[in-house]
Amino acid sequence: MIKHTAFALLLLTVPVLAQANAGGDTAGSSANTTARPVTGEQVYVQVCQGCHMADAKGGVGAGRIPALAKNSNLEDPSYPVSMIVQGRGAMPPLTDLLNPAQIAAVATYVRTHFGNNYKKPVKEADVKAIMGQ
């Protein structure tokens, strides 16, 4: 029995240590289960638009969300794909939300819409290569 008592007391330390990795203030609800977007346009509307805006013109305040409209940085397809995969600064990596097929679809979509005309489609395999898969 002594062994058990000492063990129980040691358990007291566990929550204190675990708390160091707590995720901050959240709703505490389960992840939502609503259907995932499929086409490039759906991915754009349901993910990218939350930042880059419906017209893809971005916005400027203290920080700046760059326009994807008429953006010559999209010419090299690996650039938008790596942005989506790795993120940078206030652009988060989106791989826990989107799979390679969805990333390919949305990269193709932004490269062919909003005044961009880079016709060559981005393939799922291209995305996987950049993800090191």
Binding site: T26, A27, N32, T34, V45, Q46, C48, G50, L97
Partner: peptide, 11 residues
């Protein structure tokens, strides 16, 4: 909202 749901609402 957070995650996917929050992106949908933000857009």
């Amino acid at each position: 909202a957070n995650g996917a749901g929050a992106f949908r609402l933000a857009g």
